[in-house]
């Protein structure tokens, strides 16, 4: 099967699965919103402070809230079909615009976090495997379990105490210096300083996961003939590990990363809240505080859609890394 055909097949399968999945999620989300005490009209009325019964009723008619639930559901589907997630009652702005403005920030943070986690996880896992069952292995195993047990928001705050408050090395929040450099090397360094702590925080749990996976993969690979051959033909250990051992670990790592995207989107809510990072998670926190349920629902739908897209991409990546992975 040619490579392009495999990619197309994989995409088609994912798309066919995505449609019923999104349909169920949207419907679940809609009924979830029906559980909320009060509706949009009540909130606007509470916001403005002085609203008469007639005023609230007029708002209900305007938002279609006086219609039967099923009709509201179909209106909601209709809106979604036009990529509209409704209007935020507080800001009066389209919810989809508010969310889309924040998606790149979250994706950037997640991408850097995965990269950091991969680097640290590879390093830790390889060290553990090469010194397997000796003291460094045991200590690093314990350390990775600690990484796995730490609440992300707490380690973020502790990093702020150490690196921002006491050492002054990294900023404690935000995404860039306001009025700072806007292009070139200075811009890059500025962004890098702001993203270091949040990305490290978000990636920490995954360092533990990658370290364990890498350790197992390296130990497993050491038994194989191709590794013995590589050593016998005189390759340096570093090269054997990089070219022969880790490369084989890439397929399970890609599969695992794809499966963890959903979890990472959840982690982004707390990390972005801690570091005031302008992403979707921070928007979710603001929406909780302001009781903006349409925004929360929108974030739930958009992040589910992101998971679907990410899964499709990681499926393709996996089939490219290992042509034996079956595409059916």
């Amino acid at each position: 099967m040619s490579r392009n055909r495999r990619i197309l097949l994989s995409l088609r399968r994912n798309l066919l699965q995505a449609i019923p999945t999104m349909f169920v999620i949207v419907t679940l989300g809609f009924f979830l919103m029906q559980l909320a005490p009060g509706d949009v009209a009540d909130y606007i009325a509470a916001e403005t402070g002085a609203a008469s019964e007639e005023g609230i009723h007029a708002l209900r008619v305007q938002f279609g809230l006086n219609l039967p639930v099923l009709e509201q559901l179909f209106a909601y589907y209709d809106n979604l079909a036009h990529f509209s997630l409704g209007i935020s009652p507080r800001y009066g702005a389209p919810v989809s615009d508010m969310i889309m403005a924040r998606v790149p920030g979250t994706l950037l943070l997640m991408g850097v976090a995965i990269a950091v986690a991969l680097l640290l996880g590879f390093a830790m896992g390889t060290t553990m495997a090469l010194l397997s069952r000796r003291l460094p292995d045991r200590l690093l195993s314990l350390l990775s379990l600690v990484f796995y047990s730490v609440p992300t928001f707490w380690i973020g705050l502790m990093l702020i105490v150490l690196f921002s408050v006491h050492l002054g090395l990294f900023p404690s929040g935000g995404a860039r210096t306001i009025g700072g450099p806007s292009e070139g090397w200075d811009w890059f360094v500025d962004r890098l300083r702001y993203i270091t702590l949040p990305a490290l925080t978000l990636g920490l749990n995954y360092v533990a996961i990658y370290a364990r996976l890498t350790r197992a993969a390296v130990i497993e690979a050491q038994r194989h003939d191709y590794v013995r051959t590589a050593i016998a033909k005189g390759l340096t250990p570093a090269r054997v590990i990089r070219r022969h051992v880790l490369r084989n670990a890439l397929t399970p790592i890609a599969a695992l990363t794809g499966a963890k995207v959903a979890g990472m989107l959840g982690g982004a809510i707390v990390v972005e809240t801690v570091f005031s990072w302008p992403g979707m998670g921070r928007l979710a926190y603001e929406a909780i505080l302001a009781r903006e349920y349409p925004v929360l629902l929108g974030i739930l739908l958009v992040s589910s859609a992101l998971v679907i897209v990410a899964n499709a991409l990681f499926d393709i990546l996996q089939s490219l890394l290992d042509p034996r992975v079956e595409v059916s």
Binding site: I25, L32, A36, A262, G263, G266, R291, L300
Partner: peptide, 24 residues
């Protein structure tokens, strides 16, 4: 299995936040 797959697509913590925020 399809139902479980759908659940695994929804980011669990995001759903949890929405659920608890909405139901109080």
């Amino acid at each position: 299995v399809r139902f479980i797959e759908i659940f695994q697509t929804i980011p669990g913590f995001v759903l949890l936040v929405v659920l608890v925020a909405v139901i109080q």
